Lab assay of single mutants.
Amino acid sequence: RHRTTFSPVQLEQLESAFGRNQYPDIWARESLARDTGLSEARIQVWFQNRRAKQRK
Rank of each mutant, 00 (worst) to 15 (best):
P24A: 12
Q54A: 12
G37K: 11
G19H: 08
Q48D: 14
A52W: 09
A28G: 07
D35W: 08
R42Y: 07
N21T: 11
I26R: 13
T5V: 11
R50F: 03
E12A: 10
L38S: 08
D25A: 03
S16T: 10
L11Y: 11
T5S: 09
F6T: 06
G19R: 14
A52R: 10
R55Y: 14
V45G: 12
H2I: 14
F18R: 00
S7L: 05
K53V: 11
P8W: 03
A28F: 05
N49H: 10
P8E: 10
H2M: 09
S39L: 04
K53G: 12
R50N: 04
R3G: 14
R51W: 02
Q44P: 03
A52D: 08
I43E: 01
L32M: 07
R42A: 15
P24N: 05
W46C: 02
W46Q: 01
V45H: 09
A28L: 11
N49T: 11
S16Q: 14
P24K: 01
R29W: 03
F6S: 04
A41Q: 13
F18G: 01
D35R: 11
R34M: 09
P8R: 13
R20P: 05
P8G: 13
Q10V: 13
I26E: 08
E15A: 03
E40C: 07
E30P: 00
G37W: 01
Q10E: 12
A41K: 14
G19S: 14
L32A: 01
R34E: 04
Q10W: 03
T4W: 10
P8D: 07
G19Y: 06
H2N: 10
A41M: 08
A33F: 00
S7G: 04
S16I: 12
T5H: 12
Q22I: 03
F6H: 08
W46G: 02
L32T: 00
R55G: 15
R20Y: 05
Q22G: 05
R50W: 00
S31L: 14
Q48L: 08
A33T: 08
A33G: 06
T36F: 09
R55A: 10
L32C: 01
S7C: 03
F18M: 01
T4F: 12
W46E: 02
L38M: 08
V9I: 08
L32G: 00
R3A: 11
R20L: 09
A52I: 07
A41C: 11
Q22E: 14
L11R: 07
S16H: 14
D25V: 03
L32V: 03
S16W: 12
E15F: 00
N21K: 02
Q13A: 11
R34C: 03
G37L: 03
W27I: 13
Q54F: 05
A52V: 09
Q54M: 09
A33N: 02
G19V: 13
R55E: 05
R1T: 11
L38F: 02
W46R: 01
Q44R: 14
W27P: 14
L11Q: 12
Q10N: 04
A52C: 08
H2S: 08
Q54P: 05
R34N: 09
P24T: 04
R51H: 04
N21C: 07
P24D: 04
E15T: 05
S39H: 09
S39Q: 13
T4D: 15
R34I: 04
Y23V: 07
A17H: 15
L38P: 01
Q54T: 12
N21G: 06
A33M: 05
E12R: 11
Q22F: 03
V45W: 11
E15H: 03
I26C: 07
E15Y: 03
F47Y: 07
Q13R: 13
R29C: 15
R55C: 15
R3T: 15
Q54V: 07
F18K: 01
T4S: 12
A17M: 04
E15V: 05
R42H: 14
F47A: 01
H2D: 13
P24V: 03
T36P: 01
V45Q: 14
R42P: 04
D35T: 14
D35L: 14
L14A: 00
L14W: 00
R3W: 09
Q54I: 05
Q44L: 14
S16Y: 06
Q10G: 03
N21Q: 14
R55W: 15
G19E: 11
R20A: 10
L11M: 08
Q44T: 06
A52L: 13
H2P: 06
L32I: 12
L32W: 02
E40N: 03
A52E: 12
S31V: 12
R50D: 00
G37C: 05
V9C: 14
I43H: 00
L11N: 06
E30H: 09
R3P: 15
R20N: 10
W27H: 15
R1C: 05
A41N: 08
Q48Y: 07
E40H: 07
P24I: 06
Q48M: 07
G37I: 02
T36V: 11
T4R: 09
A52H: 15
A28D: 04
R42G: 12
D35A: 13
Q13L: 09
N49E: 14
R34P: 01
F18T: 02
Q10K: 03
I26F: 08
E40Q: 07
H2E: 15
V9N: 01
S31I: 10
R34F: 03
I26M: 13
S7I: 04
D35G: 13
K53Y: 09
P24Y: 05
L14V: 01
Y23H: 14
S7T: 08
V45T: 12
F18V: 02
N21Y: 06
G37H: 05
G37R: 07
G19A: 12
N49V: 08
P8A: 14
E40R: 06
E12T: 08
T5C: 05
V45I: 15
L11K: 10
W27T: 15
E15G: 02
V9R: 15
Q22P: 08
D25N: 09
Q44S: 14
A41D: 15
P8L: 07
G19N: 05
E12N: 04
A52Q: 04
E40I: 10
Q10Y: 00
I43N: 02
P24L: 08
S31G: 06
N49G: 09
F6E: 10
E40M: 10
F47Q: 00
R51V: 07
S16D: 10
R29E: 03
T5N: 07
Q44I: 13
P8N: 11
P24Q: 02
Q54Y: 06
I26G: 08
V9D: 06
R51D: 00
T4E: 14
R20S: 08
R51E: 00
G37Q: 13
S16R: 14
F18S: 00
V9H: 14
I26D: 14
A52F: 04
N21F: 04
N49Y: 05
F47M: 05
V9L: 12
F6Q: 03
Q54C: 10
K53H: 10
S39D: 14
L11H: 09
E30M: 07
P8Q: 11
L11E: 11
T36A: 04
T36Q: 00
A33S: 10
L32F: 00
A33K: 07
L11V: 10
R42W: 11
R29F: 04
R20E: 08
Q54H: 07
T36L: 13
W46V: 02
V45D: 15
T5L: 05
R3F: 15
L14H: 00
S16V: 09
A33L: 01
R51S: 04
Q44M: 12
Q10C: 04
E12F: 05
R34Y: 04
E15K: 04
L38K: 02
V45M: 13
Q13H: 08
F47S: 01
S39R: 07
S39G: 07
Q54W: 09
W27G: 14
T5M: 08
L11D: 06
R20V: 09
G19D: 06
L38W: 03
L14Y: 02
F18E: 02
A52T: 12
W27Q: 15
E12D: 11
R50S: 03
